[in-house]
Design a protein around this nucleic acid. Structure first.
Lengths: 124, 124
DNA sequence: TTTCTTGCAAAACATTTGCAAATCG
DNA sequence: CGATTTGCAAATGTTTTGCAAGAAA
């Protein structure tokens, strides 16, 4: 939790540059492609580190490998059941955070995911 | 997609009996405990089969292993960041499914997950 | 019999960890 | 220098697959 080293900065910037909710492997590949020497484990561990720092989010979706998102503004996701594509949905979802009967649970974060068929997959 | 065999029935009933959103391993262990002979791969594959049939759901949460839920009625989940406990939240969440700007995306399923601190973890 | 399902073990894939070397402050 | 971070490889955990044997239709 101490310093933003060169590697951490690079991974964070890579995340902030992209909007494809990448897996650790995708981040690793894209950094490797820039002829930058880095280890896979470092990418994994750094992504978790950045999640713990609150600089990126780990998405609440079931996926064989974890997916991360550097977009911290409130938004939700559309996932196509057919092609697997994942799109941002930035319109605010009207959820009242003062919903009842939480039995003392303190909500820090709400995630909303829509699953269905994207326009392309509906038309075929 | 054809028949509800003895194994499938047993796994489905095990799922319907419990409310702990188990992993495949948890289902396997609990069936094994009843001295019933079954293979781990069969449990894995059967759970996916039941998901595809629409008889159970695979939850949209990030977790090291997939979690399943036989409760098909509309509800959402509270997950404690501290103890990891996962609770059902059955009050309906007022999301208008006619939300705008979906660009032709057909929504079939909405999942809502609250992360935060449960009552027990707040008090210590 | 013909088709579908299961068990098993191995393969494939995802994640975590220990430790020595490198880097940071 | 002392503390933290990284690379590497190995350990661990999860999911998928191929195929022979078994069960169902």
């Amino acid at each position: 939790m101490k310093s933003l080293t060169r590697h951490r900065k690079m991974i964070l910037e890579n995340m902030q540059y992209r909007t494809d909710h990448p897996t650790a492997k995708m981040v690793f590949d894209s950094i490797k492609m820039n002829t930058y020497k880095i280890s896979f484990a470092t990418v994994y561990n750094t992504l978790e580190y950045l999640v713990n720092c609150g600089m990126i989010k780990k998405l609440d979706i079931n996926s064989q490998s974890a997916r991360y998102d550097a977009n911290l503004s409130e938004h939700s996701h559309l996932i196509c059941k057919s092609c697997g594509n994942m799109m941002d949905y930035i319109e605010p979802i009207p959820i009242d955070t003062s919903i009842p009967n939480l039995n003392g649970f303190i909500v820090e974060d709400i995630s909303v995911t829509f699953r269905g068929l994207c326009q392309d997959c509906v038309h075929n």
